[in-house]
Amino acid sequence: MKKHLSVRYGTIQGCYWMGYAALMGYASVYLLEKGFTNTQIGLLTAVGCIVSAVLQPALASYADRPESPSVRTMLLGANLIQLVLVISLAATAESSSMVVRTLLYGASITMLMLMIPFVNSLGMETIRQGEELDYGIGRGMGSVAYAIASWLLGRLTASFGADMIPIWAIALNILFLICVFHFPFKKDRKKAEAEKEETGAAGPVDFLKRYPSSW
Rank of each mutant, 00 (worst) to 15 (best):
A22C: 03
I116E: 08
L114I: 09
H4P: 05
D163T: 11
V51Y: 05
A145R: 01
L55F: 11
I50R: 03
P204I: 02
S121N: 12
V29E: 13
H4D: 14
R65F: 04
T11G: 06
G130R: 05
L43D: 10
T110L: 05
M18L: 04
V144T: 12
R155F: 15
G10M: 02
Y20E: 05
S214M: 12
G203V: 02
R65N: 06
L85R: 07
W215V: 14
G19M: 12
A60I: 07
A145M: 08
T39L: 11
T126E: 05
T92H: 07
D64F: 00
G200C: 05
D188S: 05
S6W: 02
G14F: 01
G10S: 01
V84N: 08
K3W: 12
L104H: 04
L112C: 15
D188W: 06
M111P: 09
V144D: 01
Q40D: 11
V29H: 06
L32V: 07
A93S: 12
N38F: 12
R65Y: 02
S150F: 09
I127P: 04
V144R: 10
L44Y: 08
S96L: 04
S108F: 07
F185L: 09
E67A: 00
S52Q: 06
I178P: 08
E132H: 10
I174G: 09
C179V: 14
I127T: 12
N79I: 10
L89R: 03
G25Y: 01
I50G: 14
T11S: 13
H4V: 10
A53F: 01
V29T: 14
A201S: 11
E193S: 04
L122E: 01
V84P: 06
P212Q: 12
A194W: 04
P204R: 05
M124W: 07
M24S: 15
